[in-house]
Design a protein around this nucleic acid. Structure first.
Lengths: 213, 213
DNA sequence: TTCAGATTCCCGTGTTTACGGGATAGTTTG
DNA sequence: CAAACTATCCCGTAAACACGGGAATCTGAA
């Protein structure tokens, strides 16, 4: 049986063209087209079994942004795979959409063929992205995960640092680890030395940012 | 002028085939082939101006793993773009390679055409990935991505929080923002309320973890 | 126009931190 | 074995912090 596709797009021209392109494909059908995701969402809630395999979602809709729609549609139809379809290239939008569970991200400059192959691709567990987007995703990734420097923290120091990150005071840590306040203080001083900081918050910021735990 | 490509690959068969495919392309040339990244790295260090535009790097080399090579090659030739070339699909390898600065990630099942278009792609700032990889990258992303709650921080509060994350004291913040110590104190109290914390480090940890800036 | 929120400012008190000094005991390692 | 490192403990002080009280503007929405 052909896989079902929904289109959520508020530009009439795009709606038609997309639907035609998809329906020309023997193993894809597109019966439902929406111009806002709220409608799609309510339909999904009343008839969850009609959830499509793939949803093409325009990110730049009038009214409520498409990005918000991702999470909402995902919760109503967790098994439908969502491909964002957009003119935007801003990191923030891409990031949000992906975090909300989008499975692919295409630019509107994509050709019909590209769109079709992306749809098929997403059905087999792939994550189709326009190359430009893919590049941005990669660079975001390396931003998120900075070079993990080795500060040579001892096991005990890491334990203490972990508690610091969890917001514990020195006193609380000393109680939790069954050591004296002074010992904790001493460990923290050594941590400061090794991380080149001089306050709890700096240590915490560095630990979280650089994933030292 | 044709763009230069290096191949780092320890299977002779792949070496040859790859080189041929690339050299058939009019605007690509591959003159250098290595079977380990250390050699490539030392060549880059002695002749940095010979750095290629693109490096195809096999991840599963004998001896030192290709993943380590990424960082090393990147530091010797920051402007060369590295495409990982591999049979591995493990999340951890992909993750590491990307974090270390790889610009693309291809499976060895890729066809010659795909490889060529990926090379061209990476030259224009894209991030070519096999669809399977792209899918994994996206799912890794949404795993990492925290639920971004909206704590309704005001503009000013965000400014103050940002400084906190940078390790500033209340006094320093007051001087930087040209407001009194008491005002900063007041903002911080409101931030604590909204974030449901009661210390600087907790606020910092939450801000960094949940990317509130 | 009232009312909520944001932004600004102030006092005081008890707690916590940062850091200057130390010391002792156990482990690993060249 | 001695040096280096780790983990533990102690004192004291000045600074920074958390939080209890306030209060005066200003802005924008109901």
């Amino acid at each position: 049986m052909a896989n079902s596709v929904w289109i959520i797009e508020d530009v009439a021209l795009y709606q038609e063209t997309l639907q035609e392109v998809i329906n020309e494909e023997p193993d894809l059908t597109c019966k439902s087209v929406f111009d806002n995701w709220e409608d799609a969402h309510s339909l999904l809630q009343s008839l969850p079994e009609d959830a499509p395999d793939v949803i093409l979602l325009d990110i730049g809709l009038k009214g409520k942004s498409g990005v918000e729609g991702v999470a909402s549609l995902k919760s109503a139809a967790p098994d439908s795979r969502i491909i964002m379809f957009t003119v935007y290239e801003e990191n923030e939008k891409i990031f949000e959409a992906i975090c909300n569970g989008a499975s692919g991200y295409l630019l509107k400059t994509s050709t019909g063929d590209e769109i079709i192959s992306s749809i098929k691709n997403v059905l087999t567990g792939g994550g189709p992205m326009s190359p430009v987007i893919a590049g941005k995703v990669l660079s975001m990734f390396s931003q998120i995960a900075p070079v993990r420097e080795n500060y040579m923290l001892s096991v005990r120091e890491k334990e203490v640092l972990k508690e610091l990150v969890d917001g514990m005071t020195k006193k609380e840590i000393s109680e939790k680890l069954f050591i004296s306040y002074h010992t904790v203080d001493s460990h923290i001083r050594n941590i400061y030395d090794k991380l080149h900081v001089n306050s709890k918050s700096e240590a915490v910021a560095k630990a979280v940012k650089e994933r030292l735990l």
